[in-house]
Design a protein around this nucleic acid. Structure first.
Lengths: 147, 147
DNA sequence: GTGATTGCAAAGCGTTTGCACCGTA
DNA sequence: TACGGTGCAAACGCTTTGCAATCAC
């Protein structure tokens, strides 16, 4: 529990640093949005972030959520999550070649390494004549808690 | 060329049969939409289908495009394609466990087999405690023509 | 102080719904 | 003939834009 909180505070501080060093101002609305998203185990859309963030900062406007998301995505601190039921949710970004594993019940998301893909990419590339530059791999299922 | 046309006509006829045998009527607006989508090498959204179909059938309404897409998707004749720039495009569906390869320049889409994924799915499943029920795999790149 | 950032309201855009008319079976 | 399907217009929900007030630096 303590451990988790340390991690959470670290990510929040990190994002704030990153915003500041990119020339953006550290405002309360931005901190409210970051607090929610940096600490979420699942992808959230603008309205969900808005509702959660208003619990602590009731004067927040939905527009500020959209504008903060824009900046966090531009700085690659968050990334969009594509899902059969919609593609407007965001989650804290991971570095390197990691892929998403999403629980279809609670929405909890984890990342996994997908290095095993390389031979498949090479094979498909040879067969199709395509130069493959990007790949998406996502698994959907039931997490340990939701089974 | 002739070969291509035979294939195209076959798919169109197939879809019309499928609609009819599901109890839907064969109307001109539906045929206009099917003509476009059954013969497209790339995923198209409602507006693109609307514009293309109106070239041959100018009285077509956009609403009929949406309603036809709904039915074709329900019958699994078409499937939604998720893409970094949007997730509202449709392409003729394939059967079995096939995955998409999309050209980032011209949009041309091909399917490939992703059977090699099974060991990765098993590995991730063991590591994470998830029961994996569905997977998405998509490659983006440049097709032979666009290189 | 100054200019970036805010919240509100309005506009914008893609999609869906209500409805009277039309056309397939 | 009956009723499923149509196009139009209006409604809808989500996102973006315009603007005066506000706040971080």
């Amino acid at each position: 529990m303590d451990n988790l909180n340390i991690t959470r505070d670290k990510r929040t501080a990190n994002w704030l640093d990153c915003l500041r060093s990119s020339g953006y101002r550290l405002t309360e609305p931005r901190q409210a949005v970051i607090d929610i998203l940096a600490n979420s185990q699942r992808a959230l859309n603008a309205t969900e972030i808005f509702d959660l963030a208003r619990e602590n900062y009731p004067s927040l406007g939905l527009v500020s959520v959209y504008r903060t998301l824009e900046k966090l995505e531009e700085l690659e601190l968050i990334q969009k999550v594509h899902h059969p039921d919609g593609c407007q949710s965001f989650i804290a970004g991971f570095t390197g070649h990691q892929h998403l594993l999403i629980c279809q019940v609670c929405g909890q998301a984890e990342f996994f390494e997908g290095d095993d893909l390389t031979p498949l990419i090479e094979h498909v590339s040879r067969e199709s004549g395509f130069t493959i530059e990007e790949h998406w791999l996502q698994f959907f299922g039931l997490c340990a808690k939701c089974k």
